[in-house]
Amino acid sequence: MELWISGGAWITSEGYGTLSEEREINIGEGEPVIPEAKELFDEPLQRYGRFDSFTRLGCAATALALRDADMAEKQRKDDTTGMIISSDYEILNTDIDYYETTLDAEGAFSSPNLFSYTLPVIVLGECAVYYGLTGPTFCVGDDALYGLKALESAAAMIAAGKAQRMIVGWLESPPERSKGIEGEMRPSGAVFIVLDAIPAKILFSKRKLSYGNNVFKNHKNQKITSLMDVFARENER
C-alpha cells in the first residue's frame, strides 16, 4: 500500500516548524512554544486562548500541518478526512484540574467546562468542528512510540476506504511538576502529518510511504518507527 505525506508540522520547546521547511526536530525539556492564534487561523477558533495545553497544542499542530499541505482553507468542506492522534498521558493535566473543582462542597460546584475537556478526543472534536472533518476520529495510546500506532491506525482507515485523508499526530502534554506527580516525565510536544491516499498536490516521490507487513518504509526503503522518523528521514540529504 502506498500513502502520501502532503504536509506536516511540529511544536516543541525549541519552537515550531513544518515538513516543508526541512528543519530538524529537537524535543527537549520544557514547555512547547505554541504559536498565537493569529499565526494559525484565518477565522477565529473560539476559546483557543483558553484551551488547556493539550488541546491548544493539538489544534495548533493541526493548523500548521494543514497549512503546510495547502489545505487549511480547502479542507473546510471536505467530507473525507479523519484524524487520529497518539498520546500516553492523554489529558491528565485537565483531569487533575477538573478533580480539584470537585473537592469543595462534596462536588456540588464541579466545573462542567473543565469536565468537558477531560477526554483526549475533545481536541479532535475542536479540529473537526473548525475544519469540517467528518472522517474517523479517535485517540490511541502507543507506549512512547511517538505516533507510530496513530500512523498504523490511519493507514488502516485509508486501506478500508473509510477516509481519503488522515491527519495523524503524536501529542503529549504531561502533568506539570507543580501538580506533584512523581516519576520521570516524557517530553511535551506535537508532531503531526497529513496522510493522503492519493497525492492532493504535486509531490516529490520522497513524500511517499509504503506500508506492508505492519512496517512503514520511506522512499529510500528505510523503516519508519515514529512520526519523528518521517521528518528526520525526509530531511536526510
Binding site: S116, I122, G125, A128, L133, T134, G135, P136
Partner: peptide, 18 residues
C-alpha cells in the same frame, strides 16, 4: 463505520449527520 459530527464537542448533532 466511523464518522465525526463536526458539530459540537459535547453535544450530538441534531441532524444526526455523523
Amino acid at each position: 463505520g466511523i464518522a465525526n459530527d463536526a458539530n459540537h464537542i459535547t453535544g450530538p448533532a441534531r441532524d444526526a449527520r455523523g
